[in-house]
Amino acid sequence: MLATLERIELLEDAENLARMVLESDIAEQYQICLYKMQHNKETQRKINQFVKLKELYEEVQRFGKYHPDYKRVMMQIREYKREMDLDPLVAEFKLAENDLQGLLDEISMLVGGAVSSHIKVPTGNPFFDTKSSHGSGCGGGGSCGCG
Rank of each mutant, 00 (worst) to 15 (best):
D69T: 01
F63E: 13
Q31I: 10
G112Y: 02
E58Q: 14
T43V: 02
R62A: 10
D99E: 08
V111K: 10
N40E: 15
G102N: 09
K41D: 13
I119K: 05
I119T: 04
E42D: 11
E92T: 09
M75D: 15
H118Q: 10
M37L: 08
Y70K: 09
V90C: 03
Q44P: 01
Q44E: 03
L110E: 12
Q76T: 03
K54G: 08
G112Q: 03
H67F: 12
I32S: 09
P88V: 00
R45Y: 08
Q101H: 14
R62E: 15
M84D: 00
K71C: 07
E42H: 15
K36G: 14
G113S: 11
L34Q: 14
I77A: 00
K71G: 15
Y57K: 02
Y66H: 11
Q61E: 08
Q101G: 11
D87E: 12
V60W: 00
C33N: 14
G113L: 15
C33F: 12
K36A: 08
C33M: 13
E97I: 09
Y70S: 06
K81W: 00
K120Y: 07
L95W: 07
V60Q: 01
H39E: 06
A96V: 06
I107D: 08
H67P: 02
E55A: 06
L53N: 00
A114P: 14
G102I: 13
L56W: 05
K71M: 15
Q61F: 04
M84P: 00
E42W: 11
F63L: 15
Y35N: 14
K52I: 07
F93T: 03
E106F: 08
L110Q: 15
L56Y: 08
A96E: 03
V51W: 05
Y80S: 01
A114N: 13
G102T: 07
V60F: 01
K120F: 08
E92Y: 09
H67R: 12
F50Q: 00
P68Q: 12
L104D: 14
S116Q: 13
H67I: 13
Y57G: 03
E83D: 05
F50H: 01
L103Q: 07
A96R: 05
E79F: 06
T43F: 01
K120W: 05
